[in-house]
Design a protein around this nucleic acid. Sequence first.
RNA 1: GGAGAGGUGGCCGAGUGGUUGAAGGCGCACGCCUGGAAAGUGUGUAUACGUUCAUAGCGUAUCGAGGGUUCGAAUCCCUCCCUCUCCGCCA
Length: 427
Amino acid sequence: MLDPQLLRRDSEKVAKQLLRRNYKFDVDCFTELEADRRILQGRQQELQTERNQNSKEIGRLKAAGADASAILEAVGHLGKELDKVDDRLSDVQEKLGRVVHGMPNIPHDSVPDGSDETQNLEVRRWGSPREFDFDPLDHVAIGECLNMMSFDKAAKISGSRFVVLSGQLCRLQRALTQFMLDLHTQEHGYQEVYVPFLVSSNALFGTGQLPKFEEDQFRTDSQPEYYLIPTAEVPVTNLHREEIIDDRSLPLRYVCHTPCFRREAGSYGRDTRGMIRQHQFEKVELVNIVRPSESWKALEALTNHAEIVLQRLELPYRVITLCAGDLGFSSAKTYDIEVWLPGQNAYREISSCSNFMDFQARRMQCRWRNPESRRAEYAHTLNGSGLAVGRTLVAIMENCQNADGSINVPSALRPYLGGVEAINRPS
RNA sequence: GGAGAGGUGGCCGAGUGGUUGAAGGCGCACGCCUGGAAAGUGUGUAUACGUUCAUAGCGUAUCGAGGGUUCGAAUCCCUCCCUCUCCGCCA
């Protein structure tokens, strides 16, 4: 959510900035609603003042044992008029809420122009794609040859966009998770947390998935209703909703492993083959809550923490800055990390690191006590995948494959697999 | 699932219809005291919106959420949510 003050004072400037991400902010409609709100609220307050004064007078008279019937009668008509004004005001406020809650974050000045993913900007590359002396397979072929990956079995149980893994491939995925958690907790100073996978709509509103992206979520029909988390970002960032955080405990840095559930509505034709785009996948997520003055530095550090996972696994990748048009709803700036996938002959997203500034914090009322101003101010929130475990598994399978269909285990991972150096088809 | 208790400011905790935005305490900030610190002591200490040059003053709203009764609700009534205790069940 954007600062309402900013929206009122600088609406034209905001509209211009939002246009960069293809969002049309209807300034006229907004200013009109704001004008209505102001008038109605003024009228409401007048009436309330009148009522309060009269009520106090009645109290005084009754306490003194005097007759208050005259004032009682005089104040009687106020109620109905107040009701009318209340109704009109809440109607206007609801409309304003819909506008404001549906507005995306403003792209940071350092975010390049561009309307879609083709105009994202490459920042740096690490490693170089391996030269194969055979035709590399994609992870689906490798997994099926190993007899450890089945989309047919998953389809029988659940339908499309699910996978069943077995044997050493499961262990590899588990090892990856463990490796990432250990790296971030032991070397990068993150605190591990375990959180609910079912959350309330409030939590999703806080991080910005609701109300706009309802159709991307899985929702239970229980009472109360829950949503399956699309990312650990939701429960972890909301850990501090409606709090005023002590300055001394900042910055907060959490790492959390969860499954993630996504409807993938609107991506029917995309990545239908393989594990790239599933309804359920594992992810290790990094979340920062920081002082506003530190969030840009924190974004660079967070991105670097995610990159180190790939470096340790010796997987080539590149980092790109999303252009304004490709930015997520809540984000002011996002770096995507893309890993090289020989099976697709392309770099594919494996992590997305964003600075949301105070956008999420305002939605969830997450503040910190600024010792300088002594006031409660909105904190800045950030998050990034560190990494998407399923896609990392895919990357290892495709990058570390051998001509005989086996997979070499990256040395950083071997301690987590009991020293196993390669995964072979069981005889 | 059954029975009971409760949700009040950064925290704890008073308050059952009328100057209560809310006593008291803790914490925090600033001052005094001190060689320095602790203790002591004084003052201050929510958020949003409106008005405004103003983070000054004033007004309005907010005591889990929503609705109702009333001239007036933290206080009474209804619905929902949440927390705790006991019993049952269960990994």
